[in-house]
Design a protein around this nucleic acid. Structure first.
Length: 576
RNA sequence: CGGGGUGUAGCGCAGUCUGGUAGCGCGCCUGCUUUGGGAGCAGGAUGUCGGAGGUUCGAAUCCUCUCACCCCGACCA
């Protein structure tokens, strides 16, 4: 492609709306243009990168035995009413009416449509298993679209749905998809991790998320550097302390804490570590007050809590409810002396194993020190894992300690089971001629998000650094003085034709721009390989080659190559 | 949905407090010079100042309403 016949629209400054590096670079490099909140046009250069991601996804899905189809973006309400999700999905679903006032939505996902396809087409166990996928625009009316295409409302997604005559087949395909995803993200040059995930509202048993590791990621992941354990923090188990609770060694006593209302402040005042304090979180489960005890430095995990019996509707208590139950303002609350017939106490595993701890005194301006379960207050009614893991916690697989990192979710695989097939009566006849609900799996990849996630992971102060598999062009020929020098034009045109002929995606920058502009654009756009053709080098019969990025993570080093050897040299490089 | 903020040329911004008919940088157009790291000189074009209504002799500026977008939080995948 010649730059003069293509469309490149770079900018020195990014629009002020952009916050994230990838968002700024995508706008500056002219990959995307914003149309409205969470709505983007993919400009020619950006579309090339997007298509290359798509190509890898498509290839690997096909290799894994999935079959591509394309479902409508707009879906009738009736289907969604069958599964009850028309009402359940909520405001994230964009609902629209046609000219006859019939209800439709712009598909946020396609479980209903594909299940409808399956129940019409699949009659016999002989047709199973089957795995359909599509690459399609979805629309989810996000509460807060942000970070450009990272969390857009309209986005390109690859979604696959598998159908099975039994659990074993589902598990086998799930593993095949897991392996395919690993290949896809590896080929795309991403540093990623598969993590165990909460199955959430979608239901089913097995679920993994694939995260691109990046500090700007919206998800927090716990992983073990010494083993392959990794889980979303929502799910990661905090084990009970290995050592049993120590015997009481101190008497319980009141301490003056006139202004100290947080564990941090109390610990600082008393000169003790935060790990010696216990904080109390007061909440309501139905009509009942529930008190949660956590070590001072730990955070409540509401996902874990909600899984405990009777805690699904847990919410934090308001100040009126707290004053009614404790006769004390928040900031000095503690578990000692509570009316346990009215207030249930749930202690986190770690908090439950503490002794001689510091907590609120249920009396304004006072805390208690040297507090012990069994002696100064009853044992907790319930001991459970209700906190977020922290770095340094033992790994749940017993092989080392956990570390935390942030990730961008780019893929998610689920074992759905028969939730949708039952609701929509998608059945097949088994060997015995009996109707059975199909087992289902679903497997998503955020195709457009991957482009942003890659930039988030691979960039420098000059711009984007594309992995080869995603690059909109593999190589750029910067022709200095193309319009002025016959010699440059001839050398550049020849090399361009040779490389094109060899099947490489080459961009010839034949614009009448100053060298600095062309170099800066090539770097901003992030093309992996660059060749400079100018009169200066041609005098000695050479051109200059420079990779966008060296193998050692440092900026690429320039080297001089004889024009006569250029084709062979570059062909060798590009074929890798 | 709660809190905060911003809308002025394609992009980044000043001007708003203190009303007097709109400016800077980048980009764009023309010409000349320049050509291995975002050129120089000269000339030029571009705004219903987000929208509607009001106050005023006069509104980018003051008042009311409204729309859009961004950030933080809650929510969700």
């Amino acid at each position: 492609m010649r730059a003069t016949r293509f469309f490149i629209s770079t900018a020195k400054e990014a629009p002020s709306e952009a916050e994230l590096v990838s968002h700024k670079l995508m706008l500056r490099a002219g990959l995307i243009k914003r149309l409205g909140s969470g709505l983007y046009t993919w400009m020619p250069l950006g579309l090339r990168a997007l298509r290359r991601v798509e190509a890898v996804v498509r290839e690997e899905m096909n290799r894994a035995g999935a079959i591509e189809l394309l479902m409508p973006a707009v879906q009738p309400a009736e289907l969604w009413q069958e599964t009850g999700r028309w009402a359940v999905f909520g405001p994230q679903m964009l609902k629209i009416k046609d000219r006859h006032q019939r209800d439709f939505c712009f598909g946020p996902t396609h479980e209903e449509v594909i299940t409808d396809v399956a129940r019409r087409e699949i009659k016999s166990y002989r047709q199973l298993p089957v795995n359909f996928y599509q690459i399609q625009m979805k629309f989810r009316d996000e509460i807060r679209p942000r970070f450009g295409v990272m969390r857009a409302r309209e986005f390109l997604m690859k979604d696959a749905y598998s159908f099975h005559a039994g659990r074993d087949s589902l598990v086998a395909t799930y593993q095949t998809m897991y392996d395919a995803y690993t290949r896809i993200f590896s080929r795309l040059g991403l540093s990623f991790r598969a993590v165990a995930a909460d199955t959430g509202a979608i239901g089913g048993s097995g679920s993994h998320e694939f995260h691109v590791l990046a500090d700007s990621g919206e998800d927090l992941i716990a992983y073990c550097p010494d083993s392959d354990y990794a889980a979303n923090v929502e799910l990661a188990e905090a084990l009970a302390p290995a050592t049993p609770r120590a015997a009481p060694a101190e008497p319980m006593r009141e301490v003056d804490t006139p202004k100290q209302t947080t564990c941090e402040e109390v610990a600082a005042l008393l000169g003790i570590p935060l790990e010696r304090t216990v904080k109390l979180v007061a909440g309501m489960a139905g009509e009942r007050m529930v008190v949660l005890l956590l070590r001072g430095d730990h955070m409540l995990n509401e996902v874990k809590l909600a899984k405990l019996e009777g805690m699904a509707d847990f919410r934090l208590a308001n100040e009126a409810e707290i004053r009614e139950a404790f006769a004390c303002p928040p900031g000095f609350l503690g578990p000692v002396g509570l009316d346990r017939s009215r207030i249930k106490v749930i202690a986190d595993r770690t908090a439950a194993a503490m002794s001689d701890f510091v907590c609120g005194a249920n009396k304004p301006k006072y805390h208690l020190a040297g507090v012990n379960f069994g002696r100064d207050l009853q044992e907790p009614d319930w001991v459970a894992d209700i906190r977020n893991v922290v770095a340094g916690d033992p790994s749940p697989d017993g092989r080392g300690t956990l570390a935390l990192c942030r990730g961008i979710e780019v893929g998610h695989v689920f074992q759905l089971g028969s939730k949708y097939s039952q609701a929509m009566n998608a059945t097949y006849l088994d060997e015995a001629g009996k109707a059975q609900a199909m087992e289902m799996g679903c497997y998503g990849i955020g195709v457009s998000r991957i482009v942003a996630a890659s930039i988030e992971q691979h960039h420098d102060e000059k711009g984007i650094i594309w992995p080869v598999a995603m690059a909109p062009f593999l190589l750029v020929i910067v022709a200095i003085g193309y319009g002025k020098s016959e010699e440059v034009k001839k050398a550049a045109d020849t090399l361009y034709a040779e490389l094109l002929g060899a099947g490489f995606d080459v961009l010839l920058d034949d614009r009448d721009e100053r060298p600095g502009v062309m170099f800066a654009d090539a770097e901003l756009i992030g093309i992996p390989h660059r060749v400079t053709v100018g009169e200066r080098g041609l005098k000695d019969g050479t051109i200059e080659y420079q990779p966008r990025h060296g193998a050692d993570g440092q900026p690429g080093k320039a080297q001089s190559v004889a024009l006569a050897d250029a084709k062979e040299f570059l062909t060798g490089l590009l074929e890798h």
